[in-house]
Amino acid sequence: MADSPDVGRCECGAAAGPLGTCVDYYHAVLAEEQADARMYRWHPLVVCAFLLQHPSRAHPRHLDGQFRQLQLYVDQGLDALLRVGARQVARNKHGGHQDVELLAAYAPLPPGGPPASFRATFCGLPAGDGSFVSDGHPAYGHRIETIAEATVESWRSVQG
Rank of each mutant, 00 (worst) to 15 (best):
Q159F: 03
A107F: 00
G113M: 00
D36T: 12
L125S: 05
Y106V: 00
P111S: 07
C12D: 14
L30R: 15
A86N: 10
L45M: 08
L51W: 04
H94T: 12
L78V: 12
F67D: 04
Q159I: 07
M39V: 05
S56H: 11
E32Y: 06
L72H: 07
E101V: 10
D79F: 02
G112R: 01
Y26Q: 04
G141K: 02
C10K: 02
P18F: 08
V133A: 15
T146F: 01
T146V: 13
G85L: 10
S154W: 01
V152N: 06
Y140N: 01
A127Y: 02
A16S: 12
T121M: 00
G65F: 07
E145R: 05
T121F: 00
Y25L: 07
G17Y: 01
K93P: 00
D135E: 15
S131V: 03
V29N: 09
A58L: 09
T151A: 03
G141M: 02
R68Q: 12
A37Y: 01
R41M: 05
Q34W: 03
P114S: 07
W155P: 01
D99E: 11
L78I: 14
V84W: 15
S4R: 12
G95I: 03
R38D: 14
R38V: 08
C48P: 00
H97G: 15
A31K: 14
A120E: 13
N92Q: 14
E33H: 08
Y26M: 08
P126E: 11
C10F: 01
Y140H: 04
D75T: 13
Q53N: 10
P138M: 08
G112K: 02
A49N: 04
H59A: 15
P55R: 06
P126R: 11
G130C: 04
G77H: 09
A16W: 01
V7Q: 14
Q98M: 09
A15V: 05
R9P: 02
A148T: 06
A86R: 13
D36K: 10
G20K: 09
A127E: 11
F118Q: 06
V74Y: 02
T146L: 12
D129W: 06
Q69T: 04
L51H: 14
Q53A: 05
W155I: 02
P138Y: 06
R38W: 05
V29C: 11
V84C: 09
F50H: 13
R61K: 13
D79H: 09
Q53R: 06
G13L: 01
H97Q: 15
L70V: 04
E145S: 15
L102D: 11
G20I: 02
Q88P: 00
I147F: 01
Q88C: 03
D129I: 05
A105C: 04
L82A: 15
R83N: 14
G85W: 04
L81R: 10
L63R: 07
H97W: 06
P111G: 12
C123H: 03
G96M: 03
L81N: 08
R119S: 15
A105R: 13
G112I: 00
Q159A: 12
H43M: 10
A58V: 10
Q98P: 12
C12T: 06
A31Y: 08
D135I: 02
E32R: 15
R156Y: 01
H137A: 05
Q53G: 07
L102N: 10
L78D: 11
F132R: 08
R119Q: 14
H54W: 08
Y40N: 13
F50R: 05
R156I: 00
E33R: 10
V158W: 02
A28Y: 13
G65A: 12
A28E: 15
V84L: 14
F122Q: 03
